[in-house]
Design a protein around this nucleic acid. Sequence first.
DNA 1: ATTTGTGAAGGGTTTCACAGCG
DNA 2: CGCTGTGAAACCCTTCACAAAT
Lengths: 240, 240
Amino acid sequence: MPATNAAASRRRSGIPEATVARLPVYLRVLTALAESGTTTVSSEALAATAGVGSAKLRKDLSHLGSYGTRGVGYDVEYLVYQISRALGLTQHYSVVIVGVGNLGHALANYAGFATRGFRIAALVDADPRRVGEDINGLDVHHLDDLERLVKEHEASIGVIATPATSAQEVCDRLVACGVTSVLNFAPIVLAVPDSVDVRKVDLSIELQILAFHEQRKAAGATERPGSAVPDVVRGTVVAS
Amino acid sequence: MPATNAAASRRRSGIPEATVARLPVYLRVLTALAESGTTTVSSEALAATAGVGSAKLRKDLSHLGSYGTRGVGYDVEYLVYQISRALGLTQHYSVVIVGVGNLGHALANYAGFATRGFRIAALVDADPRRVGEDINGLDVHHLDDLERLVKEHEASIGVIATPATSAQEVCDRLVACGVTSVLNFAPIVLAVPDSVDVRKVDLSIELQILAFHEQRKAAGATERPGSAVPDVVRGTVVAS
DNA sequence: ATTTGTGAAGGGTTTCACAGCG
DNA sequence: CGCTGTGAAACCCTTCACAAAT
């Protein structure tokens, strides 16, 4: 699914795109382990809690360097640091969120942002009635101030949580004032220059993919009327 | 990201997982085209608006059958129907949403659900103060009634929009009462039987992936001090 | 004895380029 | 002539299995 230009990506960074997508999962599991006092973990154990195979985990980590000890495993804290560094989380990024509806509220209140070096620099909305509202300690500004806010806070990441109808226009403005990464929640395909990264989160698409698999399960069940609850069915766990 | 068991999947359905993930995008573009009165579209044009290459688009569609006309293109309405059928959207699915915080509200109000054959059968929350609240014409029920509601509405898809701490327990209960597909918004890796499909949407992970690419851009820029705004940079558009 | 790190094999996916059809 | 549909090549990713290290 994922990507475009994974080859070009790897040429520079050495880390395959598929690996990059899993590192944050490892990081989360490792952080939890560290908090529970665990100091060392094997690839087998870490892989199990992260929901992947141990060979895949080791290959992923091998792209960062040789940070394990044979016969022992990985030092939890050290791995946390190395993964953070590889992902660029030792730097801080300012994020601007455009659109403060239910979804924007959810994003503004999401604790996971701050804990990983992401600072919500500004909340912006087109509706004058929302301007001035306080969300999680942040003021809502008017869309007119978008350019000023982006430059003032040197925001490099923009989050689009607007209706689909305004998403492209907001995106264009973000890109025009220097944003180079966009996380898009609007159900629309954004057009951006090649120098800008876009990732999209699309609820409707996720549901449709699930529907596809549901359909297959149902078809399989009726093919074999004898087994009301088939005990060997393929299960699929998919990363977003 | 993507998948597990794509091989097993394809054995039954004939459609590769990577293709399944893109079909909903094509469907959305085609629906918009149909509404704007377009009756025919070429792979080139459709691919451009969907943000993919035309060869990829044609190969994707070829997995559904030969529904184009050489020298002409694809009939928009017919393609809409064929993709809908392939995805299983001609059936209707009942969805139960657990957790009615900001995110749950956003999901309950999302129009894209109903328009694709997904019916929100019930909203559920653990907080008694939310019970009885009316969201988008739907009552919020208490978590205690989860099993009853799932069975009553024959829901096969569950959406988890709870805090991470309760997500696994909610998931277990959903699976126990017959839900076979789960869309998880909680930042945690869910453990499920092989017969259950899980897809996850994780805001923090998306941001971390963007951070990785931001870091690379910054590194590239300092490597070549002469070019303040490099004009040939890799741009990456990634499907979620 | 145990667990990492990794070549090599095996699939899956994308891209190319063109044959085939309208 | 134009555009689809598709073998074949290229590429990426995963899995296997084991040598190397502690």
